[in-house]
Design a protein around this nucleic acid. Structure first.
Lengths: 200, 200
DNA sequence: CTTGTCTATGCAACGAGTTGCATAGAAAGC
DNA sequence: GCTTTCTATGCAACTCGTTGCATAGACAAG
């Protein structure tokens, strides 16, 4: 279970409540993992039961009390053990790629809007990552010599930036392909079923 | 549920049994999705019950009989409906990125082997994709004018190629970072717990 | 003064995905 | 003769992940 390890890393970087973790996972520049607050609360409870985490009730005023979690020694040991285990290179699950191949059996032009939406979302993320990089690592307000943790966060962020740039370029390629197919529209695989293609 | 849609696309491209689907999902050059045979059999059964697929028992000699699935009209319609729905841009879940950030609380040098292993795996995949591209799309044995389905498969494959190239370059960046941190080893975040760092 | 948003936590139910095991005939290698 | 590998399907049990709902006080906008 990698969520467990992601939580350990995040809590080592900075202790916090389930709510705060959920927001970090949502909005963190390093955005290397996603999880809903439900999942996080459930895993936090389990990890606390197993002694991996320590909890501290923090009373607050003007807002509900919170439970601040931090990593206990067994949690640190568990993380260390995981770091020394080999893991499998991840396998992609890319919905949009499924849609692109699926559009061979539908109207290619109909996918253009969707691809453009995705492209815009990836441009947003890229801008967000670049702003974060400037703020935390390469700008004038960044700490002068970065420590090891910051260097590692930076290299992960560079990965995110490279990913977004690559994806945007690929989506441009996809759009060009869809436009080309749109012009010579009629060589779409003939639908055998309920949705006959209007022959322009 | 995107597995359902991936199965529809794959069966439209070519009908086949659960076993064959599992192998396609495993080894397909387009490798856009992963699933175990268990999951595939279960979903195939459900989709058949729902009338999305048609089955044909195919007796074979020298090997067990198989059930060849193909897409029925309602399945085609379901795919078409899904293609016209917007989907969210996928969110990454990158174990290795978690490990990289986690190594701030451990020995950075210990991760080098792991990262090299991943790099090698991505190089293999890239070689595999490039071979497939040459065979199916750009080489002398490829069909001369590609039809729409092939163009779309090609652009998805180009995405896979771009992803692997980007990843390999990023892993080189990661390795360089880890080596740099290895030389100035002692500014690792001081462990507070059970694993004291050996000061080189 | 009502609606909506933000902080903060959680239950219940469901769906997605994994792991281990079982069956069973054919072929290939040791 | 034995083990392993390949084809082919499936059950059972489990964990992981999502969705909908509930609570509850504080604050801001209309």
């Amino acid at each position: 279970m990698a969520l467990e390890h992601a939580i350990l890393v995040s809590l080592l970087e900075k202790p916090g409540s389930g709510y705060e973790l959920a927001r970090r996972f949502d909005r963190s520049i390093g955005r290397f993992w996603t999880a809903t607050h439900q999942q996080i609360y459930r895993v936090l409870n389990r990890m606390e039961r197993e002694g991996l985490l320590a909890v501290r009730e923090v009373p607050q005023q003007g807002r509900p009390d919170k439970k601040e979690y931090s990593v206990a020694d067994p949690g640190r040991a568990a993380l260390s053990r995981w770091l020394h285990e080999p893991i499998e290179p991840e396998s992609l699950r890319h919905d949009l790629a499924v849609k692109i191949r699926g559009t061979a059996f539908d109207d290619p032009a109909a996918l253009i809007g969707e691809v453009e939406r995705h492209r815009a979302a990836h441009c947003d993320r890229l801008a967000h990552y670049l702003a974060g990089e400037l703020r935390d690592f390469t700008g004038p307000d960044a700490p002068a010599p970065l420590d090891a943790g910051q260097e590692l966060q930076h290299v992960v962020l560079r990965g995110g930036i490279a990913y977004e740039r690559m994806t945007i370029a690929w989506l441009d390629d996809v759009l060009a392909t869809l436009h080309t197919l749109g012009t010579k529209a009629s060589d779409v695989a003939a639908p055998q079923g309920s949705t006959p293609a209007p022959s322009a």
